[in-house]
Design a protein around this nucleic acid. Structure first.
Lengths: 145, 145
DNA sequence: TATATTTGCATCGTGAACGATATAAATAAC
DNA sequence: GTTATTTATATCGTTCACGATGCAAATATA
């Protein structure tokens, strides 16, 4: 058996699985408030800086606008954000939190810690996290070409 | 600004992004042969051990059968695998590689190395990979409850 | 051996991801 | 000042993920 093709030797499969499982860990916490994980990411971006064009949100999340646009439309339908045409550039769609969208932050205060604790184990501790972050950041930067 | 809600402090966002970007790195290499990344994972499983029931493939990939079943049906339509009813247990669907499916391994020999090289950088080297694998495995095991 | 439960897989509906394409506004080139 | 190009976003089609549900075969229980 060719070692290169062994599933257990694949970095990608580990990243793919870890990403799916941690998203699943978020699911019950977010679903309680009618949110999906990608929608939660959009909220993280808007809580940091409200009123951003679609493109800035997409760039921050390293996603394409064809992924973000329908996602934002669903969030608009839920009354979490508003979408309005940009004033200085009519091509832009400016996304803005509603009161409901801002208030969600208070309702989700326990989420980061709950998920953070869920992943803690032998090798994942407050001391080892920075090293892991650094490696993942390097992978991300490397693949962004 | 609450540090806990900063996007740059989220492990999950890093895993999610790294997973997406590395899957994108596979895309041109696999697409050339009509494969998607999850289909490639199924091939890795079947190349290790042919003729497995749907459930074993799903368990190996930590996916649900409702994800794997339609994926396998598409692979069957492409002539990469066959699906047949199990003999000793009629509930099982046994998945078996076709000649085309087996031959794909030779056509994809360069894929692991190409993607492997694409992620190499400062902190990701043959020496640091085992440590990263260990941390990701720990996260995966921890979240599998 | 009837009945109940479990197991293996499939179907359905929803929400991402993303390549390809379209459209209109803004900007550049001529 | 037209025309061409770029930019910002949206639409469309396909393929995952995955919760919920359905169904038939296998197994356990009565």
């Amino acid at each position: 058996m060719d070692e290169r093709f062994k599933l257990d030797n694949q970095l990608c499969f580990r990243l793919y699985t870890a990403s799916r499982l941690i998203t699943q860990a978020y699911h019950p916490l977010l679903n309680e408030h009618g949110l999906t994980y990608p929608q939660y990411l959009v909220l993280l971006v808007l809580w940091e800086k409200d009123e951003q064009p679609v493109n800035d949100i997409a760039k921050r999340l390293l996603l394409e606008t064809n992924t973000v646009t329908p996602l934002l439309k669903r969030m608009e339908a839920e009354g979490i954000v508003t979408r309005s045409q940009g004033k200085k550039d009519a091509r832009q769609t400016i996304v803005k939190l509603t009161k409901k969208g801002r208030d969600l932050q208070n309702k989700l205060t326990n989420v980061p810690e709950t998920v953070g604790c869920a992943v803690l184990c032998e090798s994942i501790t407050p001391e080892t996290i920075p090293g892991l972050f650094g490696m993942l950041d390097d992978i991300i930067n490397q693949l962004q070409r």
